[in-house]
Simulated assay, not measured.
Amino acid sequence: MNVVRLPLGLLLATVLSACVSNAPVPLYQLDAGPAHAPVNEEGIAVLLGPISIADYLQREALLQRQEDGSLTTATGGRWAGSLAADIDQQLLRQLAAQLDTQRLVLAPAAPGFVPQVQIKLAISRLDSGPSRPAVLEAQWSLLSKDGKLLNGRLIRLEEPHQGGLADQVQAQSRVMQKLVTQLASAVRSADKAESVAQADAARKKAPATPAKPEAPPRMPVAEPIRIDAEVFRF
């Protein structure tokens, strides 16, 4: 029997390579921050979506923005599932928590759900790099229940970090939280304006209280004049 003898250096390199290939890869998710579960079942009804996300974000690879603007795949970690699906869920949960409403659903809505406002969102960029800040670029629109444009913004948000993958994910989470805060503020303002408009409309439709007719002028009544005097006779 022939025995193949490998050089010691090559043998060690093969063992180390096998260990590295079998090492677990860290998985990352966006952080919702201190969001709480909403309890108000009669809160404002919001339809979230449609949400469009740039093609390069619809993957599990964690991309790194380089100094020249190019994107490379991180070797030290990846997203725990689809980043696009994670963004949808993070937006839903954080927005419901900030508005304290259970009546917030992702588009398309189920039959019978009538939203008071609708949020349309397009995310064109969400990334960072070892020496590049976390950047979120997006456009959102707020529509009334009859499709009228109430508000809208084209935004760019940035957040610094320390350089590591975990720090970058936290920075990306913070720019997402800033976006949610902006959306929640717009929804509250629209809801307040709608309440004021409805109150004004109801006040205008209310029947006016009829004015009381003025009493006719009172004519003076002639009264007999009584003279209390004594007549003396001599």
Results as ranks from 00 to 15, higher is better:
residue 118 Q to P: 01
residue 62 L to I: 06
residue 30 L to Y: 05
residue 179 L to F: 03
residue 31 D to N: 15
residue 87 I to S: 09
residue 181 T to H: 04
residue 53 I to Y: 06
residue 130 P to L: 01
residue 192 K to N: 06
residue 28 Y to T: 11
residue 87 I to V: 14
residue 4 V to H: 09
residue 165 L to Y: 04
residue 52 S to C: 03
residue 208 A to K: 14
residue 97 A to W: 07
residue 130 P to R: 07
residue 113 F to G: 04
residue 215 A to N: 03
residue 36 H to K: 12
residue 22 N to G: 05
residue 164 G to A: 15
residue 121 L to P: 12
residue 169 V to S: 07
residue 73 T to W: 00
residue 213 P to I: 12
residue 220 P to R: 10
residue 221 V to Q: 13
residue 82 S to H: 05
residue 54 A to N: 08
residue 79 W to F: 07
residue 117 V to N: 10
residue 195 S to K: 15
residue 150 L to F: 03
residue 199 A to M: 10
residue 5 R to N: 10
residue 188 R to G: 02
residue 163 G to Y: 10
residue 82 S to T: 09
residue 33 G to P: 03
residue 66 Q to F: 00
residue 60 E to C: 02
residue 35 A to I: 11
residue 70 S to F: 00
residue 123 I to S: 07
residue 53 I to S: 05
residue 78 R to S: 09
residue 113 F to V: 08
residue 108 P to K: 11
residue 158 E to D: 14
residue 58 Q to D: 15
residue 195 S to C: 02
residue 81 G to R: 13
residue 156 R to P: 05
residue 143 L to M: 11
residue 196 V to C: 01
residue 84 A to N: 08
residue 11 L to M: 12
residue 83 L to A: 08
residue 194 E to T: 06
residue 90 Q to A: 13
residue 124 S to R: 14
residue 84 A to R: 11
residue 66 Q to K: 13
residue 156 R to W: 05
residue 54 A to K: 06
residue 146 D to W: 02
residue 69 G to Q: 09
residue 102 Q to M: 08
residue 173 S to W: 01
residue 165 L to P: 02
residue 224 P to W: 02
residue 169 V to A: 09
residue 9 G to E: 15
residue 57 L to Q: 10
residue 227 I to G: 02
residue 50 P to L: 13
residue 212 K to F: 01
residue 211 A to Y: 00
residue 166 A to C: 01
residue 85 A to Q: 12
residue 73 T to H: 03
residue 115 P to S: 13
residue 149 L to E: 12
residue 74 A to K: 03
residue 69 G to Y: 02
residue 163 G to F: 08
residue 53 I to A: 05
residue 79 W to K: 14
residue 52 S to W: 01
residue 90 Q to V: 07
residue 113 F to A: 11
residue 233 R to E: 11
